[in-house]
Design a protein around this nucleic acid. Structure first.
Lengths: 246, 246
DNA sequence: AATTTTCATTTGTCAGACAATTAAACGTCT
DNA sequence: AGACGTTTAATTGTCTGACAAATGAAAATT
């Protein structure tokens, strides 16, 4: 592993890239121990703090883990789906909040992806996933539920629907789309009436998945997508009216 | 922003989390300048190297950018879709290579997501996207093309198809799925015969998108998914046979 | 008024030191 | 010999102080 000595700035970034490339290429396999910080400093001809900054960059991406002590050091970390979920959700949330993505765009993406999962979920759903979906619907029917709790349960319902597809790659991809929507969904305060409608559609979807009826599941998901978009349009229109009245 | 003084280890991680939470919550808006490293060190009662390690963690996630000089410092970075693509691709690639995800699973996820885009692409495709797709098909027909170049062109074709949906959130999500597959696809050395078949299906898909025929686009994408899976099964079967003969 | 110079501020890097942690090596006692 | 405590060496975590490099603002000069 070499770094370019002609561009002196950001040594820690260059070192991080060199090590990251070695991990991606497979030259450093999972659980392999990196040389100690002192050895890396020697190899790259930099100081230990600079090496440490590079290692912290990699740790922030869950590419390495560190351990203190005699046999400690930095080890190549097996990137697990659960670890990646968190990063995916953080990134997606910030992308939406920092780039003026309209609710309509985010909502469209979310339901398009979710509808892609539905046929697989219908085919492979386990009793566990069905039970989770039913439990969340039941929770959503509780009258005293706060808007935040309702939205959280909504997310849990949809994640169960996605997980039912039994494809971890899909679950990972969808985690970002579904979870990142929650702050936007929270902006839309659900009235009792709209909750009723949504719970009804959740029930229809759960029924279709139970009966392994992919076409019906898709139909009801599409209906839910349309209803959500309509709700959002109303909320936005009302907000604009209020603004105009001020 | 406070950090927990009772768990002394990993101060830089705690500081990074505190600042990250402030960014996600919106307390630190885009382009806001953070206090200087010396000031942060004072505020958190740690040394400057520790603060720097925390800032490097955030820089690794593209949450901040730094600038030297009198009016320099660390600024909250607007996370752009292009920046997020890279991280998404790195993470997806490592997830697939480190977790023994089967080709079938990855392929299923990829085509499920891509088929979710197809109806939107059919409705909204621009002349630009159509031209890109045709150009890549033309490139794929060149007889002297290496396997690597063919795969790269394949990726470009599918990215144009996804981008045609005109939804940046979808493009972001799909980037990981499509690009991360490339190393796996490269394992499958395409014969001249299979290239012909794939190019034909690409043409069918491009035709359907041109005619804004969502149903046909989906049909041909499904056919491409099936054919890819079949190719993979053959390659794997042949490899196992060779292993058995040794 | 325009240009050059100086200067203060900030990040980037380095050297050296000590604390905390950890497992292995070592010694001691039964 | 084996079990159990002790020492020790290696390694990361943190701190202090220093200097270099970049950069914009202020001051000096033409």
């Amino acid at each position: 592993m070499k770094i370019d000595p002609t561009t002196p700035a950001d040594l820690s970034q260059q070192i991080a890239k060199a090590i990251r490339d070695a991990i991606i290429s497979g030259a450093l396999p999972v659980d392999e121990r990196l040389p100690s910080e002192a050895e890396l400093a020697d190899q790259f001809s930099v100081s230990r703090p600079t090496v440490r900054e590079a290692l912290k960059r990699l740790a922030a991406q869950s590419l390495i883990r560190t351990q203190r002590g005699a046999t400690g050091g930095a080890f190549v970390n097996r990137l697990r789906f659960e670890d990646a979920y968190g990063q995916q959700i953080t990134t997606s949330t910030l992308l939406l909040s920092m780039n003026d993505v309209s609710f309509a765009t985010a909502c469209e993406a979310r339901y398009a992806l979710e509808r892609a999962c539905a046929p697989l979920s219908a085919a492979r759903r386990s009793a566990d996933h069905l039970a989770t979906m039913r439990a969340e619907i039941h929770r959503q029917e509780q009258p005293g539920l706060t808007d935040e709790a309702f939205c959280a349960s909504d997310v849990a319902f949809h994640r169960a629907l996605v997980d039912a597809a039994g494809n971890p790659v899909l679950s990972y991809q969808l985690a970002g789309a579904v979870e990142a929507m929650q702050p936007l969904m929270n902006m839309i305060t659900f009235t009792a009436r709209s909750r009723e409608m949504i719970i009804g559609l959740h029930g229809d979807i759960a029924d279709a998945i139970t009966e392994q009826d992919a076409a019906n599941a898709d139909k009801h998901l599409a209906a839910l997508a349309n209803y959500t978009q309509e709700l959002a349009r109303n909320v936005i229109a009302r907000r604009n009216m209020r603004k105009g009245a001020e």
